[in-house]
Amino acid sequence: MNGVNKESKVGPRRMLVRGGLAVVYIAVMVMAFILGKGHKILIDNKDSQDGAIKAFENVNVTIDSQDPIDFMAGDRDQTSVRSQWHTITIKVGDQQPVVKKVTLPLNENVVLLSIPKLMANVEPYVVPFVPADEPPPPADNSGNSNEFTSPTGTEAPAAPTAPAAAPTNP
């Protein structure tokens, strides 16, 4: 195309604006990643493996503003949170509640939080959760995201163009 309107030269101002926007773009993406990252916390009230730190008899844990959870010794419970930084309020027996700030590792979907270690300030009180053996994956309910599933609940018939290569699950 013989351009009459030749691309105007990209001046320093434009370079700056475009560079700035690229930075903002990435920053927003990173922010969305960090702030939106969901973590599943498994909360433990167990003895440490070497037995040095004992579980509490009875402890009440509140994460952020979620409902408080009661633990007996040896209990484990789980909860889901969003983003890395959390305030944990721990009430052991009838003592005054202790407020702890916890930072979760960014890149872990499931972490294990040990309340006794946290109270004793023994690192690491947050560890990535490594399942002993892989839990069976949840059944693949082949619900159809076709929006035209009728309000009566009947499934829409398979689209005529449904991909042939859709894998079957063992």
Binding site: M29, M31, A32, F33, G36, K37, G38, R82, N109
Partner: peptide
């Protein structure tokens, strides 16, 4: 990818779009 990284809520949508 948003689901894979477990990015929840509107942040997850934003991430999905930007990515």
């Amino acid at each position: 990818f948003a689901i894979n990284y477990n990015i929840t809520g509107v942040n997850g949508l934003l991430f999905a779009v930007l990515a």
